[in-house]
Design a protein around this nucleic acid. Structure first.
Length: 470
RNA sequence: GCCCCCAUCGUCUAGUGGCCUAGGACACCACCCUCUCAAGGUGGCGGCACGGGUUCGAAUCCCGUUGGGGGUGCCA
């Protein structure tokens, strides 16, 4: 049952960017391979010369590396093996399992419409004995009776009646092999034991099996068809319709560890219920047979929550390092961020949110948010009194530490009359005007640490400018 | 149309005949904590698609219905 040396593969076609659906398929292959101590191979299915491009190959490889999904051995490019695929197809012709057909797809459709039956090829050229020409494609002669079945690790027994399988194309009239043929042969050549791919491949599996049988290539040990990843309309994710490129998520400030963690939970869950955890633990817990069979919605909200958790789990120095590529103001931003790193870290969900949070330390004069100004200065109580009192106290403050600043603000609050029933300073009200004057916004990192970082001169300048504006 | 697959809170899932008055997570709401915002804590909202069986007993097994999805290319 269990193969001692499982070989799995991720086989993307470079006709689009790597999107989260592909990434999930790659991840599950990788998880099973690594858990079982097997091999993870990578094959680029570039047989569609028109739509494939080396830029897209680069994008796929870059995204896989970013996610931390490595592979064993050299990358196999399917286009390098086209001759062998063609040869195999021709062998099928010799053994009577294939034949040349000159029907155009228009003609096939017209006949289907005319007979009122199901669309698809009707075997028109089966016994015409056509020779190969520039207009003929090679079709596989599918069996007329019997069934083709396989066991799917996730879905159980799946079977198809052979009479529902049409005579599909093996070689285009250009001589190029089609996906089904290349895919089936390459899997055999590469010794793939576990075929783990999307559920959209289920209907093609009997053809795959029929081909492998006809070619006497044996069958893989295991099939596992992963549930689809769907959009809000519950349709299969598509690159064109849905914004789900892995590279885009990277650019938006997601951590690869959050992405793979979240992706692993789409169709699978650890027995202990602990969702947020390092990949290494997931590798140990993952079992292909535990994967769910129903489709899953890719929920960006939950991904964000995971990202925030993984961000907080980082050591502060590492957090700064990860934020680096997202700091557009260069070294100034880095040195500004460093002392406040842990305070910022706890408050962002995406790395792109880091710089805006420390922008008040980078901009002079500070940019004041209108809504915040209205709230704290116009509607807030005793804003002028508070600003005057705090300006004086901070101007004459001994030392410049968060604790000392806090004491000064508390003293100013009492002076401005912002006190509770016991006469103690009401910081929740008092900090508003100070915060807006110095950081420009009503929300942000803890005020006293922020002012300590801002320094006495800039703090006083901003307080005076705000008072003048009032 | 035909073939195939799927069906537990809004979403992702736990659940493999009794432990389920269905558990967790995200989201949402309330409260607590608190210098704002976060984080954290507590509580709340909310689900086994429907109908038949089988069984002492069904979210769990079987059949059907409905709904959704995938495939049906000389794309992959």
């Amino acid at each position: 049952m269990t193969n001692p040396n499982p070989r799995l593969r991720f086989a993307p076609s470079p006709t689009g960017f790597l999107h989260v659906g592909n990434a999930r398929a790659a991840l599950f292959n990788w998880l099973e391979a690594r858990r079982a101590g097997g091999e993870m191979l990578l094959r680029v299915e570039d047989t569609d010369r028109e739509r494939s491009s080396s830029e897209l190959v680069d994008n796929i490889l870059t995204s896989l590396r970013w996610l931390g999904l490595d592979w064993d051995g050299d990358i196999v490019f399917q286009a390098d093996h086209l001759d062998a695929h063609r040869e195999a197809a021709l062998h099928l012709l010799d053994t009577g399992r294939a034949y040349w057909c000159d029907c155009t797809s228009e003609a096939v459709q017209a006949r289907a419409k005319a007979r009122g039956g199901p669309p698809g090829y009707d075997g028109f050229c089966r016994d015409r004995g056509l020779p190969r020409s520039d207009d003929t494609a090679l079709r596989f002669r599918a069996p007329d009776d019997g069934t083709t079945a396989f066991t799917d690790l996730i879905r159980g027994e799946v079977s198809f009646e052979n009479k529902t399988i049409e005579d599909f194309v093996l070689l285009r009239s250009s001589g190029l092999p089609v996906f089904l043929l290349s895919n089936a042969i390459d899997d055999a050549t590469m010794g793939i034991t576990h075929v783990v791919r999307g559920e959209d491949h289920v209907p093609g599996t009997p053809k795959y099996l029929l081909l492998r049988d006809a070619l006497k290539l044996g069958r893989p040990d295991v099939f596992a068809h992963l549930p689809m990843l769907v959009n809000e309309a519950r349709q299969k994710l598509s690159k064109r319709r849905d914004a789900v490129s892995v590279a885009d998520f990277e650019a938006q400030g997601y951590l690869p560890e959050a992405m793979v963690n979240y992706l692993a939970l789409l169709g699978w869950g650890p027995k202990d219920g602990v969702e947020v955890r390092p990949l290494g633990e997931i590798v140990e817990l993952f079992r292909l047979q535990d994967v769910t069979s129903s489709p899953a919605f890719f929920d960006v909200k939950k991904l964000q929550a995971f990202n925030a958790d993984h961000l907080r789990a980082l050591p502060a120095a590492e957090f700064v390092r990860r934020a680096h590529p997202f700091l557009t103001r260069g070294q100034a931003a880095v040195t500004t961020l460093e002392p406040l790193a842990s305070l910022v870290q706890e408050r962002v969900r995406l790395l792109t949110e880091v710089e805006p949070m420390i922008a008040f330390l980078l901009d002079d004069p500070v940019v004041i948010d209108d809504e915040s100004w209205q709230k704290a200065m116009v509607k807030g109580k005793a804003a002028p009194e508070m600003l005057a009192a705090v300006t004086h106290r901070l101007d004459t403050l001994d030392g410049w530490s968060a604790d000392a600043i806090r004491a000064a603000v508390e003293g100013a609050a009492v002076e401005a009359g912002l006190v509770n029933a016991e006469g103690a300073a009401q910081l929740s009200k008092a900090q508003g005007p100070v915060r807006v004057a110095t950081t420009g916004r009503i929300v942000g990192p803890p005020l006293f640490e922020a002012l300590e970082a801002l320094g006495r001169e800039r703090t006083l300048t901003r307080l005076r400018e705000a008072a003048a504006r009032l």
